[in-house]
Design a protein around this nucleic acid. Structure first.
Lengths: 318, 318
DNA sequence: CCCGGCCACAACCAACGGTTGTGTCCCTAG
DNA sequence: CTAGGGACACAACCGTTGGTTGTGGCCGGG
């Protein structure tokens, strides 16, 4: 199916005459006739009843019309999503089910008129490059890597600390605990496939391991979170970390347990990063929304690496 | 833009390699390469970074991908809307802003998983023909025309009486009234352009006129409800009737008044019509929903033509 | 009764989109 | 270091699609 054909159908339905639609589309009447005939052949139904005074929609045509309009709107949105200048606000998140996604959903609920696109970049380095180049407008990340401060033209503000939780199967030794301390985790095998060395999230777990003497294995290929949860559920000796705000869609009955970690509570600090000179109007709206809704992060009793935290106070918004 | 191209883009993005996408789509790798190149040329952005080990999405590609998926879903829905057998439930309503539309919105809220298509047919005659032929599954209508009973294979049940209200401009003689009696309307000019003789809705107003001695003018071409409201707002001597549940979207400040009519209250009786043998599963759901939510229509103090009311009690649902 | 408006059909032609064949790049294995 | 293989791009070729022009049929109005 061709969108030009759908456009032709909508134009003909609105005009009520093929000729007029043809004039609008700058083609001949015959072309419109052929396009409609082809569409009717593809769909297997008659869309118009031809009369000597024009063409009017059949019942099938009436049913098809709103779907055709929606199709064209979707096409427009798709094109707009990559249009240079005045495109939807484009935001990078760590992963599709973490805390940043929740913040973006909340923002979307508060401002449903603002078009959003969410992308997931590889690491902070590429995110910063994309923010600087203007390819994305903002990024939710831990702000830096050890020894690599943010460039001057990138601003950041800490928006959310996401507590880490332990995820275990029902047969795991800690499965029955209401909560566990970091010290209790020493000696247990924690499996996090897909942890790529050199990224800021790998650095976060490196620091966590170094600080508290944990055992984190990043071995094996990452077959996705479904496969990971599958293995965790079935393997008593394995557990994994998961963001406390991650939404897990998992069939009931597998007995997966989410257990808060305390003493201290490791948190993954999400900051919003953006370019100092980014003119996108929705960016200011997003920052205002985050400033208004961000729960004050209480540092007492939590742990995060120093380098991962945005310390700079952004200038007050204009 | 061609939907095959979009499909190719999605397949390539999912596969991560043009070759694999080509195999899925049963074309050659070169064809996929050309399609993607054409799409990138059309959009003016690069969607993939080609590597010796495949192709991965650029940031623009990532932003475009969900829109592309939505585009394909919209196309599927559009095709499904006219697919013979197992298509969305197709319901005819009197007009897009009347009581029946409200009922369908309520049904959609209660059963968001059921796909619906709403069409508007010309009159009860065509609606009955469409219901009998299976072109539509149900119709909200006053059930008949004077002297023309429903065929045996069409069942009906009264679902909602929509009270008529008077619509006037701010300078109309009745503009200040909290309510008006039918007797008070005698002598006032009531304008209803677009009332086509021979339809069941025209017959309804004919009966209203005959019973209470009103003056209804159907003169002049119908330029749509916007133009009608415009004229009503500006003409002190004119008023019109409007369904009491009609949603009027009208800029504030024009001072249009909606005035209930009493003694008796004229109501437009909407019944659901459907074919005895229609097997669409959602039709039973719709009937159950209407039976559960329909407010009992209190006949006391209301008026409607005899012929317009469904008297038959439908058999209990299986 | 003829004219005019509108749509469908036929013939023709250009351009698009697919295939085959080939080149280049890079990673990996030996 | 080299050879091989996997992956994508480019070029040439060709059939089909989709456009145009020309024409005919149908129906309503003057």
């Amino acid at each position: 199916m061709d969108l030009d054909t759908v456009r032709t159908f909508v134009a003909a339905a609105d005009a009520g005459r093929f000729q007029e639609a043809a004039a609008e589309l700058a083609v001949t009447q015959q072309a419109v006739s052929k396009r409609i005939a082809a569409l009717e052949r593809d769909l297997g139904v008659r869309l118009f009843t031809r009369t000597p005074r024009g063409a009017e929609l059949t019942i099938d045509g009436q049913a098809f019309l709103p779907h055709a309009r929606e199709l064209l709107r979707a096409a427009d949105r798709a094109v707009a999503s990559v249009r240079a200048g005045r495109r939807p606000l484009r935001v990078d998140v760590l992963n599709s089910r973490g805390a940043a996604s929740g913040l973006m959903r909340s923002f979307h609920r508060a401002h449903p008129d603002i078009d959003l696109d969410v992308v997931m970049l590889f690491d902070i380095e590429r995110a910063v490059a994309a923010v600087r180049s203007g390819a994305i407008d903002a990024s939710f990340r831990a702000v830096a890597m050890p020894g690599r401060p943010l460039p001057d033209d990138i601003e950041s503000v800490r928006v959310l600390d996401e507590p880490l939780q332990l995820l275990t199967g029902p047969a795991h030794a800690l499965a029955g605990a209401r909560s566990v301390t970091v010290a209790q985790l020493a000696g247990h095998r924690i499996w996090m496939p897909g942890l790529v060395p050199g990224t800021e999230w790998a650095a976060y777990y490196d620091d966590l391991v170094a600080e508290f003497g944990l055992t984190i294995e990043a071995t094996g290929p990452n077959f996705g979170s479904d496969a990971l949860l599958d293995t965790i559920a079935d393997t008593p000796a394995l557990a994994t970390f998961m963001g406390g705000q991650t939404r897990v869609v998992w069939p009931a009955g597998h007995g997966l347990r989410r257990i808060p970690v305390t003493d201290p509570m490791p948190v993954y600090p999400h900051s919003l990063l953006w370019h100092r000179d980014n003119p996108h109007p929705a960016l200011a709206t997003l920052r205002a929304h985050l400033a208004a809704t961000a729960a004050g992060h209480d540092a007492a009793g939590t742990w995060a690496p120093d380098w991962a935290i945005s310390r700079r106070t952004p200038p007050p918004r204009a």
